[in-house]
Amino acid sequence: MRLGKRRATPLPELNMTPMIDVVFQLLIFFMLVPHMTRVNKELLELPKLSGTEDQQESAITINITRDGQIIVTNEPRTVAGVVEMVSEEIRRLGGDRSRVKVLVRADHRGTSRMVNQVVSALAKLGVHQIRVGVEVPSR
């Protein structure tokens, strides 16, 4: 017969609070980072169309604002500057112009003047395929 009072063993407690805090912080971090890294896309109002294919990774994304300013990777450029960039890309691809992927994102409120200039300059370089960025209208 045991006369000694048996001590109740304390149940182990897991403090979940810091873990949940850290997990959510990481979640927010990884959700925000992809948006931050899209530096090549300016905030433009693209034509609201359904498009023909899902957007792919492009080597050069040319943003054209409403007032006709060209912006590439957050920096304003001229048509000559774009030509230089595309020429560099062609050289990097060993002269194969068909592999050059150019995406033109132009504000739908602007005119086609700058788009025409860029397109003509690309054609002179031998780049004959472009993709035009559109925004899928919300339902």
């Binding site: 959510f24 979640l27 927010i28 959700m31 693209l46 169309l49 359904s50 498009g51 023909t52 294919e53 899902d54 957007q55 792919q56 995406l103 994102r105 397109v119 690309l122 054609a123 780049v127 004959h128 395929q129 472009i130 993709r131 035009v132 960025g133 559109v134 925004e135 899928v136 919300s138």
Partner: peptide, 23 residues
Amino acid sequence: LLLIFFMTTGGFMTIERDLDSAI
């Protein structure tokens, strides 16, 4: 916090697609 995040950013996120064309 997450709920507020998704509510505020949800309106700004847009789906972009491409129109391919020859020049």
